[in-house]
Design a protein around this nucleic acid. Structure first.
Lengths: 314, 314
DNA sequence: TTGAAAGCGCTAACAT
DNA sequence: ATGTTAGCGCTTTCAA
């Protein structure tokens, strides 16, 4: 029918007919069946997005960037939550693939071999976000976490700190935090610094982790000058503990972190941290996907970069 | 084909044939086309979920509850983000409806008339969350925000406070905050209290709003004893300002809020607030939807309840 | 337990 | 500018 032509934008339909069709549609309460449309055209307006968690603001911001870039593009995100679980991610990829999305965006760069295989077989545009990886599935936009750890290490060394502690969540869950930690540790040690105590006690990563475990760390009386954190939420929790206990920052204890969240800059003493363009990573990832789908030029790998944000905490 | 029968669970297929089919499937890298399946059966495994924002942890927790309840149910959430915009919500409902979801979950209870009409026409199960409403579209699970405002008002009055301020985000955006504020104000005034200054300066609602506008409020020297906040993020920001300036809580300034977030209880002085079961609201909403779809018994309206969490801030 | 046939509501290609 | 026809890849129903 001509109706179909009206539904997906004037192909070659007279104004009169269009008006008639639209009138009939709104009168009948007709709802276009996109299922049938997608099947017939074997084209889908969906971009599958997998994030690790929706309770971690970092992924929310990436998601916001994707949503923003997809607005008015005719495409829309379909979101899956892996909960930091690679097996769950595989399930998600498999079931999302069954709906024939136009592309995939993954908010990390570590996957099961089977996940990668499925994605390759599907032969659709894929973009990995957050982390730069040596062998991307397809496209990739992220930051160099090793460099981020190094930059912070060099910064705190330049400030004269020598004796360090570390507090973060389980590195099996937060892989990029592990990369930053190793790089930080290695760099400070190269400069004569000492990593006295590193704790990655829990799967959870938030304010309460920081508050609780900063307490446990301080109790040990370890002669640490500065604590490096896996992210700003943990660092903020730790600072709240210090404030509650009257521990002066940075004199009695200095803090350094990673993320660049609102909470870090809102603290009574702003936390020195490293900020990455999360919203933009999402936005650019989606844009690259669209360029790819539309047959325009694109980049396979893109370094989103990061910034050292100096606060008063060290 | 018999293949179809294998794909969606043994209808009546011999073990031998099943094995053969599965072998062939994994060898060929065949991917089941759910588009065609959903079209043919006119059944969908999708639950459409609309939340206002993904950067507000409150909605993330509701979403986590939904995701949890849907796990292993054979259904999965498809998420739309309205960005607190009713027109955008209408667009979302319209386009999500075109994919024939099995049900709808909406993370608030205010909609355009057109949105409600579309939802009614579609004649599918709908559940509204977060807020109890007098005329739900269909089902509803939430809390009574008017009661929440009243409970906090009575609590602070019972503590002897008389002179109040209020700080929140724009009530045109955060409607439930507006309900709590009005109820709080009315109740304290009934008990001889005074709402001296109420500020709803920005659309944004977060830590930085609290920190910045608490400063502006304090500068005015208004002889306020207690500030009531629209939510814990704003309250936390305000407390951080007080900590930075050495304003003693609750002696020089008392604080009371709403949400029950991790950040409220992690503060050096825990913030007195009201907690609601956000995760459970999501979980129950999804469960009710499933019961409905499966033809089991369900409740149209359910009060999720809230709890006064006493901290040291007032 | 398995096979065959019809058709879900669209789009695409081809008439007119 | 509009109508016609043949699928898209499944599920459903009916037959074997």
């Amino acid at each position: 029918m001509t109706v179909s032509r009206v539904l997906r934008g004037t192909d070659n339909v007279s104004a009169t007919t269009q008006a008639k069709v639209r009138a009939a549609i709104s009168q009948l309460g007709y709802v276009h069946n996109r299922l049938a449309g997608a099947l017939a055209s074997s084209r889908s307006p969906h971009i599958a997005v997998i994030i690790s968690s929706v309770e971690n603001i970092v992924f929310s911001e990436v998601l916001a960037g994707i949503t923003n870039a997809l607005e008015d593009s005719g495409f829309q995100p379909v979101i899956g939550i892996s909960d930091y679980d690679l097996a769950r991610e595989l399930d998600l990829v498999r079931s999302m693939l069954e709906w024939r999305p136009a592309g995939f965006a993954l908010a990390h760069a570590r996957h099961n071999a089977e996940t990668v295989k499925l994605l390759h077989q599907a032969a659709l545009p894929v973009v990995e976000m957050m982390e730069l990886t040596s062998n991307p599935v397809d496209m990739c936009i992220g930051i160099d976490h090793k460099a981020a750890g190094k930059v912070m290490a060099e910064h705190v060394i330049s400030k004269g700190y020598k004796r360090f502690g570390y507090l973060g969540s389980d590195h099996a869950v937060d892989i990029t935090a592990g990369i930053r930690f190793n790089s930080f540790k290695q760099t400070v040690e190269q400069h004569g610094g000492l990593m006295i105590k590193a704790a990655m006690p829990e799967r959870n990563s938030g304010i309460s982790l920081g508050r609780k475990h900063m307490h446990l760390l301080m109790e040990q009386g370890l002669d640490i000058e500065l604590v490096y954190f896996s992210n700003d939420a943990v660092a903020a929790g730790a600072m709240l503990y210090c404030l509650a206990e009257g521990i002066r920052i940075p004199d009695q204890m200095a803090l350094a972190s990673f993320s660049g969240l609102e909470i870090a800059s809102s603290m009574p003493v702003a936390i020195t941290t490293i900020g990455s363009p999360r919203f933009d990573m999402g936005r650019i990832a989606a844009k690259q996907l669209l360029r790819r789908i539309n047959g325009e030029s694109f980049e396979f790998v893109r370094d989103a970069g990061f910034t050292l944000i100096e606060g008063g905490s060290c």
